[in-house]
Write a protein that binds this DNA or RNA. Sequence first.
RNA 1: GCGCCUGUAGCUCAGUUGGAUAGAGCAGCGGACUUCUAAUCCGCAGGCCGCAGGUUCGAAUCCUGCCAGGCGCGCCA
Length: 460
Amino acid sequence: MFWIRSFRLKMIMAVAKWGVTRKSWWNLSAPTPRVRFIWVTAEVPPSADTLCRILSFCGHQVVREFYVNDAGLQIRMLGESIWARMKQKENPNFVFPENGYHGDYILDLADTIAKEIDLSSKNPDEAVALCAQDGKEMMLTEIQRALDRFRINFDVWSSEEDLHASGLLDQTLDSIQAKGHLYDREGAVWIKTSQFGDDKDRVIRKSDGQYTYFASDIAYHLEKHRRGFTKAINIWGADHHGYVPRVKAALLSHGIPENWLSVLLIQLVKLWENGQELRMSKRAGSFVTLQELLDEVGVDAARFVFLTKSHDSPLDVDMDLIKKQDSDNPVYYVQYAHARICSIIRKAASEGIAVLDHIDGISEKLALKEEMAIIRTMSEFPALLEDISKTLEAHRLTYYLTHLAASFHRYFNMGLKNSELRVVTEDKTLTQARLILVSGVKIVIANGLRLLGVSAPEKM
RNA sequence: GCGCCUGUAGCUCAGUUGGAUAGAGCAGCGGACUUCUAAUCCGCAGGCCGCAGGUUCGAAUCCUGCCAGGCGCGCCA
């Protein structure tokens, strides 16, 4: 989950027609504001995106949705924070809101907005509202820009505010009411989630008439289910794990089975620099931005590195280490295998030997135990992807590709000592057989890297 | 106090239905480039798999209890 206190940006992938259309593997061969993604959650977009890619690859229809919590207090607080920073330029004693957002990005937003709009004639309420609206739009723009750079695309951007405006919330409330799961207490409206596995009942509408955040979430999920999605996958920061039972309980109260919704909880990343831990406070923090990470190591390396750990395992990241990792990142190991194979294919072509589209009659030429190892590993690819579609553990793909690349590199190096063990040899039939083998590896690696959102260079 | 997650090599992490001598990368040491790309390969060294019990023919994996760290327990978002 991206989490900037003013926003809670929920990424929801809903998978429709779970398991209906399956493709066969064999058909597959074929000083402006900077982005303020907090590091603790920067790993979410790559792993979620890869998961989507794998699910699609396996034949599922996937809709990627980015849900923005832009209703109510949070946005107003954003506006007040920006406004306060503006006022402080001329009056350092201007009071900063108690629960305001302290990050430096607020200063940037304040500067930018101050240049664009003259707020001096506005009364405070109007000014705050304008700051809130502009600040929100600017942050969303930044997020979108960063996602583009990260090669991540969402099909749908939905807003909590729109959810309110559409009347869906009232509708949802009625529907829960009709099922007899609501009651009033001390002026608030409660939902009986405790009857469906939650610790206690929850407030859905506060005594001041405002809906809670939870209310929007219920409406949101029910709407997803109503529209026919057979599976929903939410990706949240691990600090929200306590929230899962109540959402599931609310869904269960509408007869939606517990396993309809999967929530992946991404553990927090601890960041180290110069031997010191950088505490990533949600609102006061020294942010390390996603932009900086991308500048430092590049998109390929950044995406790969986030997918080398299981999502429920915490990761310590040493900035000094990741900065020098640009030449040393495991992604290059896999990419290099791909580039090397391309080089072999070019070499063969220069000698007039093309890659055949079948291996009939020459497959027995492949007899080395290293060749068998490669074939065995390649054959595991489809099952691996199916497994990942079920377990939602995308990190296994990086380990698989590293393993496959290793089996190729080992094979390749034999040819350095003994020219008879090269792919391109004097024996044309043997060469053709080995060409098919390595171009198979090339295809699997290219597919795997594409699923990771990583490029597969032909030369390095 | 209660709940969830984590604890595996010096460091970062894999280890998915319980199965043979527990793996990889980085860091360390020693080797391999007149050759299809050395961003590679080969070898050495490095482990009471947090601790203690239990289940099992067999446990890093399952159960219980501890210890340590992270996170969460509002008419907050």
